[in-house]
Simulated scan of single mutants.
Amino acid sequence: MGRVIAEISMSADGIVAGPDTSTEHRLGKDGDLLHEWMFEGTDAEAGFAAKLFEGTGAFVVGRSMFDMGVDPWGDDGTFKKPVFVVTNRPHEPVVKGPTTFTFVTDGVESALRQAKAAAGAENVVLMGGGTTLRQFLLAGLVDELRLHVVPLLFGAGVRLFDAEVGAHVKLERTEVEATPNATHLTFRVLNSQR
């Protein structure tokens, strides 16, 4: 059985999206700076970006991430795997090439059940945004947390851990690797309820 992996980029001060998120600034003002390591980085960083898709059978995202990302993701939907969108607004599935976005309105547990069924023996990756990741952590549904920390103090924006994630989520660091444009931290979540 695959793992449930929460993966997100953030600034050194915990920002996962800049201020003033809009269709013009889908990751908030200057929020693209948080992901430059993926697209303009070194070969080592490209390896970390590729790891996101290795062994992954399905993805889960929040509705805001879908709304802001669906156009930039292009005609193939980027993921090329099933994507489950946690939302409270019903929507018919969206198909972009090999990527199907299914909208789940009955909570994170349901989204995870559907994603695990689609992924089979492969992993399910929770892509964000921050609110969605916190919901999964609070529910005890995450096996592994991967943080890509960009050497930047953002100052303002959406903080990853600005709300409750559960009573002391205990982590065991399993990997640390520094590349020129980010520090990549991997933790096993010790008090997962899965």
Rank of each mutant, 00 (worst) to 15 (best):
P82T: 05
F53N: 04
T186W: 14
E175N: 14
L133W: 04
A58V: 09
G18H: 08
V60G: 05
V142Y: 09
G74N: 04
E54P: 09
G47C: 00
A50C: 11
V189R: 00
I5M: 04
D143W: 08
P19E: 12
A111Q: 01
N88P: 02
F48R: 13
A117R: 11
F53D: 10
A121H: 13
A156T: 15
G28S: 05
S11H: 06
E122H: 15
A50W: 14
L137E: 02
L34G: 04
G77F: 00
T102C: 03
T132E: 07
G77Q: 03
R26S: 13
V158S: 10
A6D: 02
V165F: 00
T132Q: 10
R89D: 10
V85L: 05
H35N: 14
K116I: 06
P82A: 04
I15W: 05
G31C: 08
K29V: 14
V86W: 00
G166L: 00
A46C: 10
V176H: 11
K29F: 13
Q135E: 15
L160V: 09
L145E: 04
T99H: 06
G18D: 08
T102M: 01
A117G: 02
I15V: 15
L137C: 04
V142A: 05
R3Q: 13
P72A: 10
L27A: 10
E24H: 10
L126S: 07
E36D: 12
A119V: 05
T105G: 04
T23G: 13
D76M: 07
G28L: 06
V60E: 00
S11T: 08
V149P: 08
V142F: 09
V83I: 07
E122N: 15
T42Q: 01
R63T: 08
D67H: 05
V60R: 03
D76N: 10
P151W: 08
A182H: 11
G14D: 00
L171Y: 02
L171P: 02
T21H: 02
F101Q: 05
V83A: 04
D143Y: 07
D75C: 06
F66M: 01
V95I: 13
Q135T: 15
L133H: 04
R3E: 11
K96F: 07
L147M: 07
T23Y: 14
V60M: 12
T99S: 05
V142I: 12
T102A: 02
S9Q: 10
G155L: 09
P90L: 01
G107F: 08
L126P: 01
A111L: 08
V169Y: 06
G69S: 15
